[in-house]
Amino acid sequence: MSSPTATAGKPANRKLGGLQGRDLGRYTLLIVLLLIVVVTAIGNPRFLSVNNLMNILFQVSALGIVASGQTILLIAGGLDLSVGAALSVAGLATALTIMHTGSVALGILAGVVAGCVIGAINGMLVATNRATPFIITLGTMTFLQGVAILMSGGSPINGTGALFDVFGLGDFLGVPWPVYAMFASILVMFVVLRFTTLGRYAFAIGGNEEAARLSGIPVRRIKIALYALSGLFVGVAGVILTGVLDSGLPSMGTGYELRAIAAVVIGGTPLIGGRGTVIGTLGGVLLLGLVSNSMNLLGVGANFQSAVLGLIITAAVLLQKKA
């Protein structure tokens, strides 16, 4: 039994602690990011050069787009492990279309449509089956990895013409086009989550799916729409990455699924859904990019990098949870 004093004291403490916790939680990621920036800037002044900062944004742009799409899925209690393989398929669809038709516009269309269709199929499978999204999208991931190999014959599809000129080499006001695409994706997802019915339904489904269903939300249709939307983002990322690398590769999306989920979770969206922000996801994406960049600039040996990256990610997540 708790003493009356302790019981009486708890709500006040919890309220105070909750307020502090929320504030701390909101700023934990920012604090970690700033810490990395300061340490790296001291270690290597070139870190803060515009050139390097643009490099970091350029390097995380495709991940940022994929993670934006993954954010709304996680908020809705969903998950898509096939985004990496879907990115490869979308990229190959783009590269192959450009190779066979010579049309960059058709290539872009092919990549975006491929991503969107894959997302919609995932959505249908998840919405109409009792199996968890983890298992269903694990299956589609494996299937799509095979499709990517079949599409490419196991080899890179090189040469994307104007797509490389734009996404690989091009910029506007010194900012590479893929960076604009990433921020546009984040803005779109911000608007969807904050101002649209689809966004509100995503929070409702992630918070309590049964309650959402009972309150009249068409859960199945919304899930299909959410997965299709995420797939659309994956398609866009596939097109951009194909342009950046001037090639479609069967392995180009390898690891994106886990990095995207890591970025979303680091950004404060729990795996069980119900809450989260795409701005937080942007923070998670930047953290992943910054850590890798700063280690290289600080001269951390290649043998240590993976361990250090893992430690920083774990610390960031634990600090947020604690807060």
């Binding site: 290597n44 050069s49 490099n55 390097q59 950046v244 690398l245 180009m252 600039l297 290649a302």
Partner: peptide, 19 residues
């Protein structure tokens, strides 16, 4: 180390050129 990967090597080379 860039894990034999084209994109990771591009990122690593960008960072080398800055540093």
């Amino acid at each position: 180390a860039a894990d034999w990967d084209r994109q990771k090597a591009m990122d690593a080379a960008s960072q080398i050129l800055v540093a």
